[in-house]
Amino acid sequence: MSTRAVHTPLAHHFEDLEHQRSAATFGMWIFLATEILFFGGMFTAYTIYRSLHPLAFAEISQHLDIVLGTVNTAVLIGSSFTMVLAVYGAHTDRRTMLILCLALTLLLGLAFLGIKFTEYYHKFQEHHVPGPFFNYPGPFGREAAMFFSLYFAMTGLHALHMIIGVGILSILIVMSWKGRFTSEYHNPVELSGLYWHFVDIVWIFLYPLLYLIGRHLE
């Protein structure tokens, strides 16, 4: 805790830590609002093509691995749980809990990415990746190319956010290790938590849209 005197967390243009914290939180939510619209464009594209080709999309979505998709949903929810425990640890000045929970969140995030890339690998093997080697027998070839383009764009953008999140978590672990966070000041942990939970929420919608709707036709 001796670092607190050396490293003062209060920026000069804020009156006090609470002023700084509320401004930072508000800014983070504004950023998340822009993220909603960033992903929103893709959700709109998905809604249009699903509504134009409901039967084709229902059939094609059966090719996604529902077991891996469901496990990944649980993994990501677990990582949100450990993330919120990390914020709790920071708030209550429990440094070991903070570092441990950040590390667990990082591991679960990496597990999610690992499972996601396994799924991608299968898609490459099955020639379901739009491009020169794309092959989807049957009457729904063009719709399948559209579905898998949306699938890779949406899950790819989500995975990119996860990779950025993994980087942020690594920095947070180093900062916590150096004792930068106290119960009075842990804005970076809290704001990164908001980001991580937002990415979780995006997946919570991707999972039913891509994996579940139309599953009963199997």
């Binding site: 609002a33 929103g40 709109t44």
Partner: peptide, 19 residues
């Protein structure tokens, strides 16, 4: 704070317009 739900509702409103 009350401002935060306002940000969320505004973002969802824009998303609704878009879709």
């Amino acid at each position: 704070a009350r401002l935060t739900p306002l940000v969320v509702v505004t973002a969802l409103f824009w998303l609704a317009i878009l879709i």
